[in-house]
């Protein structure tokens, strides 16, 4: 069960961090969209390619291919550069202070001395952070779709939202990892740094042949649910399993550390 008033407090306390995330990802959405202003897509896109030295000039320039290439371009820009990288930063910023900041300010004792159980406190804090993270990721993805529509490009909403959700699942795991470090230290900076380091380790499998599907970063880029490839549940199930395992670890640490 979640503590209603604690949930409201968490949302309010993290509003600035949420706004930072929206601004960061919103700015990225704008940066990704802005080149479209230079001319009608996808024609200008192909004309620039024609001018590149060594570029084949007999590319398939059919409207379907052009459309597909255009969507793919936006997909890679947004999912690889926007959500997967900037999203990690946002989830670490949201998670680093969850317990560490309360410990540093001495408010955790006040919270613990209320009738809320440690489970209540932990789950409520995680839920509030996830709501903000979700709103930030999905919201800015919709913002990207809105920005592109200003230039006459209609990106397919559903695949982009599914791709964003895929990134959110990976970010939720990183958020849990950050919270675990936040339980162990009373310095949000240390918790964030430790989480960033561990999150980078979770991407190491992607460096090896056949390990791509176990790489957190690569999976968050939604390669298995891109416009071209068939949708796969594997990543979602893996992230769900990791998330709940980390939640149990976090809760166990809360009791062990007597927060």
């Amino acid at each position: 069960m979640l503590g209603r008033s604690l949930f409201r407090k968490e949302i309010r306390e993290n509003t600035l961090k949420f706004l930072f995330g929206v601004l960061l990802l919103g700015a990225l959405a704008l940066i990704i969209t802005t080149p479209a202003a230079s001319g009608p897509y996808p024609q200008s896109f192909f004309s620039r390619q024609d001018n590149l030295p060594g570029m084949e000039t007999n590319l398939d320039k059919s409207p379907e291919t052009a459309q597909k290439t255009l969507f793919s371009h936006f997909w890679k820009q947004w999912n690889s550069k926007g959500l997967a990288l900037a999203g990690i930063l946002v989830s670490i910023i949201l998670g680093a202070g969850v317990f560490a900041q309360e410990k540093a300010k001495g408010t955790l004792f006040f919270l613990a001395s209320t009738p809320l159980s440690r489970r209540n406190i932990y789950d409520t804090k995680v839920a509030a952070g996830l709501v903000l993270l979700f709103a930030c990721i999905i919201g800015t993805t919709l913002l990207l779709i809105l920005f592109t529509s200003f230039y006459g490009i209609s990106l397919p909403v559903l695949p982009f939202v599914i791709g964003a959700f895929s990134a959110f699942c990976g970010l939720a795991v990183i958020y849990q990892v950050t919270i675990i470090f936040s339980i162990l230290t009373d310095d949000p900076l240390k918790a964030g740094a430790a989480s960033a380091f561990l999150s980078s380790l979770l991407s190491i499998p992607g460096l090896f042949e056949g390990g791509q599907k176990y790489s957190l970063l690569l999976q968050m880029q939604s390669r298995n649910s891109t416009l071209e490839e068939p949708f796969s549940w594997f990543f979602f199930l893996l992230m769900a399993a990791l998330f709940f395992a980390l939640r149990h670890l976090g809760l166990w640490l809360c009791y062990r550390e007597e927060i």
Binding site: S5, L6, K9, K105, T107, F110, T114, P115, L116
Partner: peptide
Amino acid sequence: SEEPRFYDFLTVQELLRFCRDLY
């Protein structure tokens, strides 16, 4: 407690509302 610490960003009234829902 000896040194009570509350959430600095809340007003007294908001803190009371926060606590009221817990008991």
